[in-house]
Design a protein around this nucleic acid. Sequence first.
DNA 1: ATCGTTGCAAACGTTTTGCATAAGG
DNA 2: CCTTATGCAAAACGTTTGCAACGAT
Lengths: 171, 171
Amino acid sequence: MSNPSKNESEPLQAVEVSMTPLQRYEEFLQARGLRNTSQKKFLLEQVFNRHEHFDADLLIEQLPSRGSTNYVSRPTVYRTLKEFVDAGLLHRFELDGRSMYELNYGYPEHDHLYCTKCRQLIEFTSDEIVRLRDEVARSHRFRVKDHRFIIQGVCDQCAKKRSLGRRQDRV
Amino acid sequence: MSNPSKNESEPLQAVEVSMTPLQRYEEFLQARGLRNTSQKKFLLEQVFNRHEHFDADLLIEQLPSRGSTNYVSRPTVYRTLKEFVDAGLLHRFELDGRSMYELNYGYPEHDHLYCTKCRQLIEFTSDEIVRLRDEVARSHRFRVKDHRFIIQGVCDQCAKKRSLGRRQDRV
DNA sequence: ATCGTTGCAAACGTTTTGCATAAGG
DNA sequence: CCTTATGCAAAACGTTTGCAACGAT
């Protein structure tokens, strides 16, 4: 038993890291012989100004449009997000058939509650999950790289206003 | 810390159920005023002959092709799989951007280890995960309907033959 | 006779690709 | 210079939809 998960009511705090995301990214690029272009720099900045999960579409929507300065094309956004994931800056997971991204550098490991009514993702942390994960993996001689744990259901607010502005429940 | 997960080395056993999948499905259809067509019956049979996870594409590939008896069109396969999920016969989850299905009736609840090298899904059961899930949910006043827990990494076999027939690692 | 279901073709939304041009190291 | 990166257009991918004909109840 014991304290299974920290108090999850407050937003997650940033954690100490030795390099800024930009420094870490530049190191990554250098190590691989990749280039740090203006698009990549701009996207990194945009992405690290967010503190919420997002998908490629939402990000693109909020970026300068074709013609504006700092315009980044859709393929480049996809290519760059993939690079950020490779660099360990972002974490990717799938939800409702598309990729979601969230900060993975300078933020504590966490998992999600997913409300299938309002589509809200609620974060929580739990040391026990990590312990359990490693225990299961060890018993299978499996080398863990990552995990996803998503609890699906209905959040408190949606459960209350059951018959009002209820949206489609799709899971 | 107590027995966290049963011995997962043997394949999972079927569990006792009061109705056959077909019976349960017919009850579901009747309750909703839906119809039991030859296509649905045939698909149910095909699906419950499997004991492995599958996606729509793999299933369709192994079904009679256009022109043969028992041919079922692609849209009907998708529509019917969705119905099976609604009926509680199948469980759906997403992997690498597409929907995977597995038996959910007459089989114990379980989670997965996913080898990103050979794409193998390994099942395991853990009571602790369910307990933990419910505990986290309760502390958020969240009404759990389901969860997915996938541990990503490299399986024992792939870890050994590192440099031989290694396939792309995509997660 | 209803009304859900089917197959077809065509659309869909997300992500990826080929390719010619641009630009970082 | 050399090679990676970009933008464009178009393709690819898994999945869904509109619709007319079909078939279960």
